[in-house]
Amino acid sequence: MTSETPHEPDQALHVEDLTVSYGEATALWDIDLDIPPGVMCAIVGPNGAGKSTLIKAALGLVRPVAGHVRFLGQPVARMRGQIGYVPQRQSVDWDFPTTARDVVEMGLYRSLGWFRRPGRDARARALAALAEVDMQDYADRQISQLSGGQQQRVFLARALVQDTPILILDEPLAGVDASTEAVIMALLQRLRDEGRTVIVVHHDLTTVQSYFDWLVMLNVRIIAQGPVRDVYTPENLRAAYGRQLAMIAVPAQAT
């Protein structure tokens, strides 16, 4: 883990030999993965495939048994300020006494540094980020008064406010309504068009082809990775999900 010289700097995310286990259960086995910069990448796979574990391990939130991870050639510890992270919505207690704007300002705590409180500038940036997800009118709402979709948008705004070249989102479309999904996807596509790398743990196979241009198919091991049109095939879906689901999910024939 002591590489002063960048390792694989041409990849937004480079994962090599990554293995993670919880007790006896292997969550990820020998993952080799490359995601180039500037793509909108979906990570898909059945429940328990290790999708969330993969991004948590990449971010250093879960300690791997083996393997290493690089973002743009650097270990994650040096890239903290360059990666925006949107955890699963259910991972926090929304009854916490705080407002939407306050949550978004949390995205700026790192750049503020120790002992400094967010001031007027942070407030303005937080409000701007909320406006980007169409939530400016809810800035001073207590977060438990927001709907699930609104909470998800607040979480996204907290990552946006950091203005990072890489964004990693864990199931941002889980349990949100169609209008929130549209807002989130339009925003993510705009971020991708600005040259950022967007990595999304995704569960809805039917929208993979329309939303994403890069695809990682996972089931403890890597099943396939690459451009969506190469990877989203009946064989790969069968390998990842098993026979029945593959038959439902595979459209007649994709582009």
């Binding site: 250093g60 991972s91 949390m106 120790w114």
Partner: peptide
């Protein structure tokens, strides 16, 4: 008082705090 925002973030969302390098 000194660690107000850090304590707040850790109490609300420890995973995010860790991803931020806290």
């Amino acid at each position: 008082l000194a660690l107000w925002k850090e304590f707040k973030l850790v109490s609300f969302d420890a995973d995010f705090a860790r991803a931020q390098g806290l």
